[in-house]
Design a protein around this nucleic acid. Sequence first.
DNA 1: CGCCCCTATTTTTTT
DNA 2: AATAGGGGCG
Length: 862
Amino acid sequence: MIRMTEPSKITSVPDHQPAAGGIAARARASVGPKYLSGLNPEQREAVETLDGPVLVLAGAGTGKTRVLTTRIAHILSQGRARPAEILSVTFTNKAAREMKHRLGQMLGHAVEGMPWLGTFHSIGGRILRFHAELAQLKSNFTVLDVDDQVRLLKQLLQAENIDDKRWPARMLAGLIDGWKNRGLTPSQVPSGEAAMFANGKGGKLYASYQERLKILNAADFGDLLLENIRIFREHPDILRQYQQRFKFILVDEYQDTNVAQYLWLRLLSQAPSSLASPRVREEADAQSAAGEGDSPQAGFVEAAPHPNPLPVKDGEREKNHVKNICCVGDDDQSIYGWRGAEVDNILRFEHDFPGAKVIRLERNYRSTGHILAAASHLIAHNEGRLGKTLRTEDHDGEKVTVTGSWDSEEEARGIGEEIEQIQRKGEKLNEIAILVRASYQMREFEDRFVTLGLPYRVIGGPRFYERAEIRDALAYLRVINSPADDLAFERIVNVPKRGLGDATIQLLHDHARKRRIPLFDAARAVVETDELKPKARGSLRDVVAQFDRWRAQREVTAHTDLAQIVLDESGYTEMWQKDRSADAAGRLENLKELVRSMEEFENLQGFLEHISLVMDREGGAEDDAVSLMTLHSAKGLEFDNVFLPGWEEGLFPSQRTLDEQGRAGLEEERRLGHVGLTRARRRAMIYFATNRRIHGTWSTTIPSRFLDELPAANVEITESKGGSAWGGTGGYGASRFDDMEAFGSTYSTPGWQRAQANRNRGGGRNGGGGRGGFEEEAATFSSSSSGPDFGSFSSRRRGPLTIEGELVAKSTGTTSEFSLSDRVFHQKFGYGRVTKIDGNKLTIAFDKAGEKKVVDSFVQRA
DNA sequence: CGCCCCTATTTTTTT
DNA sequence: AATAGGGGCG
């Protein structure tokens, strides 16, 4: 299911009349502070301190979202602002949705009137559409995704004759993204950095990329904020307009803001003042950001000057008055430094916003004593923190367990059994999560769960709108909406195959470049000449004619109908219908879902405006299933039972992060561990394995240093339940947990040696909890995390194996409903015939994939 | 123009 | 080990 949060159409800049005093007074009298009653004193202070800058340091599970939403309710009921005068930003659509939802519960209907509650990008995008012409764009500009970006850059690299093997377009995209995250326009990029790419051409490429974007009437994600900043700087009158409108600013997850977001917020948060010209100051800052941003991690917190200090000279303070901004965050949960987040933003808040009030929320309402103590003790090893001490009034609960396994398969088996035990106690699978450091760890669990018939869902992974069929469909609509969208045109001009290959495209490009016209117009012109072979010429003429027709139809047809017509008439639907491969059905289903989702928008334009920003899948929590996800995507979630596998040096903390980011990287990894532990309400279970297969090769690993940083008093070392190859006694150090030697000594215990011997014999690994040699076949089912277009959105009309948010495996019955030589269909292997039946396990001769053993719930009658 | 084979790659993820 | 993407060949 797709969910759109933003209204589809912006009709005008909302007005900013002051709230009527009468309404305010009435609200104060009638509502009273009843919404305040459930808050603890700190929360209450965070809600009620409306004036001046406020930083709320909200540790994990301390009621952060509650504070934010209650604060909004408070502002409204106090009559301090109208809904349209509150700017409330989050990072993800999910968070924005959650806030809207909770506000709705608190206030009833009033949420509709909060037009400025959204993600940084959706709000930046909305502002940019109002002033598009100031960024040399039209208000119907396209928002490019990463794929478009890379294709565009590839073209630029080719034009410059740069070997895109040596200088990959992806790398340049990453650089440009990084610059934009730091608020740098092409001219502001430090020359040293600009020269890094392609022997000095990096800066020039960035500049020509920006030029191309304007011609294509397109913006990338970074532009949505960067162009805002530029417009604000160059047009103080426009900035003032927004400063006046937003009486209150609220920011969620402030620790994740990057420099551009910080600049954007700071511009908007300055009280409107006709005296100070923000422009001069801002530009000076940007320069300093450029100069010092070189190695943001180098000095970490202690010495590095903040790239963007808010310059406050004596006597300028009043003029530079900062208005009511409230940032909520947790420096201990900053885990996105690798993509440009500046922990410094939160660490330097008081400095940046003089007179700021800092409120700490330290009472945790989520976890038991042992879990909280373990998490706190771990994070205390970090140096660059603002410091918080989480406390709970909950009982101690069970200790955090640490379990060693021989290898990652045993780890998965052990966790599988533990889960079954939890399930037998009657607990919900929805209350169980496995949090991994890297997504390749997921496979082992998926394999195991498929074998066990344990329902699970993978959270994260490829997004709906990143799927090829969705992007193709969108490309058709983009060309209709914006004929200058060359990237979209190029994407679908030969999809389905029309005999328009590289040669034709090249010709169109030449034409387009010579006359400085879009590809589509070039195509229209070329069709009139005889430069193309008759076949290609005919095809191209048809394409042009089709688009002309669709554009005409657009005026008289509902946009959903138009989309359906386009998909059908273009032959796109047919292309997948003819496709006999396993996932074709899912793709068709996705296309249907896309058309269905368009209904939520008024028109095509509105749909396209928001699709790349707001389209998002909904977590289908209605089925009872174990959640499997990365530590990163777990932020903000909580579960009764949390499994934390893979606590080994190299994997967690990740060697790569350590290599690239040094100590700052280690601290970020540690914060990740802290995030993982604090997801748990009742039980946290840590695992490590001695041997792990990485990229196909087995290697021996040592337990994570983070294990040594856990407090012995809150941790219990347990035995793997997966049929331990360690020998019966669990032969490693039960006593001195703080001591690395406790683990080091393990390797000389009898258990370890026995395991070693077993392994050499080749029999050790399968002996324990394995249920026959079925894993190999089962393994081939899972792939929701690796196959980008596997499965579909909806579980109902398809087989049980679907993607994220949906049931993946269904418990298997004892007898098979299939008979010999039944014709069947399998999601991954396609069509085949049953050749052997063994309980619920079928042997099937697939037309393409050959003979495979498969659980019957994974196939359906063809 | 399309197909097949080879090779290089392999964290974390939002918008 | 597996996969995706590019290059080369038919």
